[in-house]
Structures are given as structure tokens and as C-alpha cells.
Design a protein around this nucleic acid. Structure first.
Length: 119
DNA sequence: ACGTTGACCTATA
DNA sequence: GTATAGGCCAACG
């Protein structure tokens, strides 16, 4: 009944929206969750569309594999990403998330570890 | 429709 | 540890 055939963007946004506050994830993790592990670029591309897409997309919670804020320059304001992360009690230093490994939130582990009894 | 681009990741040197 | 190359797939021009 539900049309699952959503655009690639919508799928990415859906996962990003599920990221809890104070947590961060990586493009590769989302890509893997979507089923395209090697296509992490598409995730970033979807984020770029978040500008023109309605609804708020916490793209600041999405960083690269190194926990580096690669997309901060792509934000409406360069310092917006870092500011938002600080607002979520996430320490950012040198454009990199501190304790990134501890704050890392993997959709494959968090979302999938639970049985999808009821989506 | 074809070619380029892209907020990445992995591997090799 | 830095630099370069390849791959991946969808959207944009």
C-alpha cells in the first residue's frame, strides 16, 4: 500500500531525520543502510538537495568516515554546522567531531538491530 | 541522451 | 602520513 518507491533523496532524508540529537553518522553508513555501500557520494548529493527540499534535514549530524565536517562549507553558513553540533553537546575541534567514535550512530546497527516487526 | 559533477570510501605508492 | 587513482551511482547541464 505505501509507495516505497521514493526518490533517493527522500530515503536519505528519512534516515537522517532518525538520527538522535547528540549523535552523528557517516555517509557510508547511510549508503550501506540504503543498500548501496559504495555509493556514499549519493548520500552527500542528497544532502545538497536538502537545501531545496522542504523540511529540516539535520545534515550537521552527518559527517564523513573520519568524523570530519567536510560539508560545512556547503552549508548556508560555513559555521552553521559546527554551531549546530555544539548546540547538541557535540564538541567539534579543527572541523572534526571529538569522540566521534563514541557519538557515532550507525543506522545499520541502531535501526536494523531491532526487528522490523512494525516499521 | 551523453558527459560532468559530487557534502565519499578504499586501495596503492 | 600525504598524494594519487579508481569506483560507485544518481542528479544536473
Amino acid at each position: 500500500m505505501a509507495k516505497k518507491e521514493k526518490n533517493f533523496f527522500e530515503r536519505v532524508f528519512d534516515v537522517v531525520r532518525k538520527i538522535p540529537a547528540g549523535r552523528v553518522t557517516s555517509y557510508g553508513a547511510i549508503a550501506e543502510y540504503l543498500g548501496s555501500k559504495g555509493s556514499s557520494r549519493m548520500v552527500g548529493w542528497a544532502m545538497n538537495a536538502s537545501h531545496t527540499t522542504r523540511g529540516f534535514i539535520p545534515a550537521h549530524r552527518v559527517v564523513n568516515r573520519n568524523g570530519q565536517l567536510t560539508g560545512r562549507l556547503n552549508f548556508p553558513h560555513p559555521d552553521l554546522m559546527e554551531e549546530l553540533l555544539n548546540n547538541e553537546h557535540v564538541r567539534v575541534e579543527n572541523n572534526q567531531v571529538v569522540d566521534f567514535k563514541e557519538k557515532f550512530w550507525d543506522p545499520n546497527t541502531e535501526l536494523r538491530k531491532k526487528k522490523r516487526t512494525s516499521k
